[in-house]
């Protein structure tokens, strides 16, 4: 694999916790890979399974979804729905023979800058190790 391979990662972060955690990683001058470009949503629950699948099939090598810790969702129960829906996407991935490790759901609080940087680093590492998404643009939705 080409050493300079920069994976294409789509990261959805909820405004209240995980996006703020990402901000804090910046304020604390922590380092994480350039592949993570946050896409802000109001709540992780906004990112429905089909959208994740679409982002993946259109060409993401990995999809990261960040939300508040269970119990801390700004909209009370949003992330419980996210968790259930994400479990469904994982199952769909597996049954379609797609690599489920390429999608990840993480709970990151507003004060967890270091955790955000760690997740961003680890996830990018994982994706780099797996290489390019083999079904990229081969299946359409």
């Amino acid at each position: 694999m080409d050493k300079k391979y920069v994976p294409r990662i789509t990261s959805f972060l909820c405004k209240w916790c995980s996006y703020t955690g990402a901000d804090l990683a910046g304020t604390s001058r922590l380092q994480y890979p350039t592949a993570i470009i946050p896409i802000k949503v109001m709540c992780s629950s906004r990112v429905d399974p089909v959208f994740i699948l679409r982002a993946f099939l259109k060409g993401s090598d990995g999809v990261l979804l960040g939300g508040c810790h269970p119990g801390d969702c700004h909209y009370e129960t949003g992330n419980y729905h996210t968790r259930r829906r994400f479990a469904i996407v994982k199952t769909v991935f597996e049954s379609l023979g797609l690599e489920a490790e390429r999608i990840r759901l993480s709970w990151i609080s507003a004060s967890e800058g270091p955790k955000f940087a760690r997740v961003a680093n680890e996830f990018t590492e994982t994706i780099i190790a797996m290489g390019e998404n083999p079904v990229k643009k081969k299946i359409f939705l």
């Binding site: 294409r8 789509t10 990261s11 896409i39 949503v41 982002a55 259109k58």
Partner: peptide, 18 residues
């Protein structure tokens, strides 16, 4: 969901996977 529609978010996704 206004201001967070699929086409709007997809524009950001498009850039992330370019």
């Amino acid at each position: 969901t206004k201001h967070f529609t699929n086409p709007q978010l997809y524009q950001e996704v498009r850039e992330a996977i370019r």
